[in-house]
């Protein structure tokens, strides 16, 4: 791989071209610009670009045509569409034709930077390893915790749900978990979501999650933040008039998302879980200091500073111990965990 990626920016407004060039050059990319489709394709054929950013609406050869030609010439090049107000449906069309993402106009430098770094991350990821198999169990509890690889957030563009794309088996996956059996009994009354202290922040409320499990919207559910926001207070469970164990369903979904790592968005909970598991497998008990430090170092180093005073105060009150306590019969516990792991989990 080259040490610098190169990007071609195509827009009929010079100011957009210029500002893109400025933003992306600052981020360490090689950037060239073109003010129309014809010029763009000429430059593209000559140069060696990794990414093309192109405005959808242009006089003459438009964005869609540029996309088609680029994909024809070099399918591995990623194309990002720039869209204006009212062209979202065309953007969707473009994504179907192979565009990797789109930036709605107007955008801030941060927005552009974020989308491009996601594209870059995905590109390097594709080169580095094959995508994990769906449903494969990836528990390797005694090795050093692997880096949790985050994938770029999916852009869910609203569209017709095509039956063909739904996952019929999703409902069975959930129903085969203890507590998940009754998900089919939901009458969509919303008591769960109304009771949940956190549902207001979820991508989908627990009631919607129930409906989506039944409909087979596996990807949407497993990549949603809902399952990681659940604080496990069980209020939904005790209030559900159909006695559906909603909290347990959330656990089942967390497990499924964990196993299929492509669903782990930038939520921090999976990371915390991962470190906690490592901690318990190593010592048999949780070593609070180690867990906290490891987690914050990776998830949010700045928080360590922020919480250091609190940590010090706890330490002074002997509420933090520096050394972990290991249980005596740790080998027994590990044998058991290995066996449970070998059994392939619950599903």
């Amino acid at each position: 791989m080259k040490d610098k990626m190169s990007i071609l920016v195509v827009d009929d407004e010079p100011i957009v071209c210029d500002s893109c060039k400025k933003i992306l050059t600052e981020k360490g990319f090689m950037v060239e610009t073109a003010l129309n489709g014809e010029e763009a394709l000429k430059k593209f054929k000559k140069g060696d670009f990794d990414i093309v950013i192109v405005d959808l609406k242009m006089p003459g050869v438009d964005g869609m045509e540029v996309l088609r030609s680029v994909k024809k010439i070099k399918p591995e090049v990623d194309v990002v569409m720039i869209t204006g107000y009212g062209t979202i449906p065309s953007a969707v069309e473009a994504m179907k034709l192979g565009a990797v993402d789109y930036v709605p106009k107007p955008f801030t430098p941060e927005e552009l930077g974020q989308i491009i770094s996601q594209v870059v991350e995905k590109r390097s990821k594709l080169v580095a390893e094959k995508a994990p198999k769906k449903g494969a169990i990836l528990l390797d509890v005694f090795k050093k915790p692997p880096k949790v690889v985050y994938h770029p957030e999916r852009v869910w563009v609203k569209d017709i749900k095509i039956e063909e794309t739904l996952d019929e088996n999703f409902l069975n996956e959930v129903r085969s978990t203890p507590g998940g059996e009754r998900v089919i009994d939901c009458i969509q009354c919303g008591t769960c979501s109304g009771s949940c202290p956190l549902s207001y922040r979820m991508d989908y409320t627990p009631r919607e999650i129930n409906a989506m499990v039944r409909a087979g919207l596996r990807d949407e559910v497993l990549s949603s933040n809902s399952i990681w926001i659940c604080s496990s207070c069980y209020l939904c469970t005790v209030r559900c008039p159909r006695q559906i164990k909603i909290t347990d369903i959330m656990y089942a979904l967390k497990n499924l998302a964990m196993k299929d790592k492509r669903f782990l968005k930038k939520a921090k909970s999976p990371l915390l879980s991962r470190y906690f598991v490592d901690n318990v497998n190593r010592y048999g008990r949780n070593h609070e200091l180690e867990l906290t430090l490891k987690f914050f170092l990776r998830a949010n180093p700045r928080a360590i500073l922020k919480h250091s005073l609190m940590g010090l105060r706890l330490f002074l009150r002997k509420r933090f111990s520096v050394f972990p306590k290991r249980i005596k019969n740790i080998n027994q516990l590990r044998t058991m965990v290995r066996k449970a792991e070998a059994l392939g989990g619950l599903r």
Binding site: L139, V141, T177, P178, S231, S232, Y251, A252, K254, N255, M258, S269, P270, L272, S273, R274, F276, V277, V280, G284, R285, N286, I327, K328, N329, Q332, L333, M336, V337, A340, E341, L343, G345, L346
Partner: peptide, 24 residues
């Protein structure tokens, strides 16, 4: 020689192992 119950955190990761920790 009791061990960690797994709490909500291990349960999020893998239910069977987490239940087994309690079972021990």
């Amino acid at each position: 020689d009791w061990n960690c119950c797994g709490a909500t955190v291990y349960l999020s990761y893998e239910e069977l192992i987490s239940f087994s920790l309690c079972a021990r």
